Amino acid sequence: MFPEDSASEEPSVRMGEDTEIGTAVGYNLRSWKCLKLLALNADGVLFTPTALQGPAGLHLRTYHSRDVVGVRRLRRTGVQVLLLSDEDDPVFNTLAEREKCSLRQNCKDKLSELDSHRQELGLSWSEVGYVGHDESDVECMRRVGVSACADNSDSLVQRIARFISNYAGAKGALREFTDQVVELNKMGPKLDTEVEGLIR
């Protein structure tokens, strides 16, 4: 069952093995800042990595509607969303345009693409989050303020993620994380004070 938009219960999520032990809520709040940009690997996080090849070269991918709703909730709260992909797939263009997300395809160096976009927006790394899926995401995940992944992501990705969803990629993992981003962003300046109280 997916968490409801209005749910107040704390999520039962896991932390990667290589991350610092956080608080009882399941992820490391010590370094959490109000996120203003969320970047993610379009392959495996928003869309299933499996592609269907139809007649006349028709290319199909699937995604979960709840994940897209999560992206919309972020956009409504002022968080920018950047989709990154190793490939060049027209399917990504359609969704990115409809949901008003930035898109960088055929990325040979995701960290450089993310850094360039971050600087264009005038953001610090602590204001950037990243949801990864494969080894090509590792450097980005290590650089940003908060990193996350699905429970079927690459083992290395899971070891360094600060938030590991209970759901698979393209099957609700992104929505579970974006719900937490929306709620924690609402706390704003109060967060640092409350975290200090939790970790004393």
Rank of each mutant, 00 (worst) to 15 (best):
Q80G: 12
Q80P: 01
V81P: 09
V81R: 03
V81M: 13
L82G: 01
L82R: 00
L83Q: 11
L83N: 07
L83V: 10
L84T: 06
L84H: 02
D86M: 07
E87L: 11
D88N: 15
P90Y: 03
P90V: 09
P90D: 08
P90H: 03
V91C: 15
V91Y: 07
V91H: 06
V91A: 13
F92R: 06
F92W: 09
F92S: 03
N93M: 07
N93W: 07
T94N: 04
L95N: 03
L95T: 15
L95F: 09
L95C: 02
A96N: 11
A96G: 02
A96F: 08
E97S: 11
E97W: 11
R98G: 05
R98H: 08
R98E: 08
E99I: 11
C101A: 04
S102Y: 06
L103Q: 09
Q105N: 01
Q105M: 12
N106D: 14
C107D: 11
K108D: 06
D109A: 10
K110A: 11
L111M: 02
S112L: 05
L114A: 00
L114P: 00
L114T: 01
L114S: 00
D115M: 02
D115E: 14
S116G: 05
S116V: 04
S116T: 09
H117S: 07
R118K: 12
R118H: 03
Q119T: 08
Q119I: 14
E120T: 13
L121Q: 11
L121K: 02
G122V: 01
L123T: 04
S124K: 15
S124E: 14
S124H: 12
S126H: 07
S126N: 12
E127T: 00
E127G: 01
G129C: 03
G129Y: 02
G129L: 06
G132M: 12
G132E: 09
H133I: 03
H133E: 13
H133K: 14
H133A: 13
D134L: 03
E135M: 08
E135H: 10
E135L: 12
D137G: 09
E139D: 15
E139V: 05
C140G: 00
C140E: 00
C140I: 04
C140L: 01
M141H: 02
M141L: 13
M141A: 02
M141P: 00
R142M: 10
R143T: 01
V144H: 04
V144M: 09
G145W: 07
S147E: 02
S147L: 04
A148T: 04
A150M: 09
A150D: 01
A150Y: 09
A150F: 10
D151P: 05
D151R: 14
N152T: 07
N152F: 06
S155I: 08
S155T: 10
L156C: 06
V157I: 15
V157Y: 13
Q158Y: 08
R159A: 13
R159Y: 11
I160L: 15
I160G: 12
R162Y: 04
I164A: 06
I164W: 15
S165G: 10
S165M: 11
N166L: 09
N166R: 05
Y167P: 03
Y167H: 12
Y167F: 15
A168D: 14
A168P: 06
G169T: 13
A170Q: 11
A170F: 10
K171I: 03
K171N: 06
G172Q: 04
G172W: 01
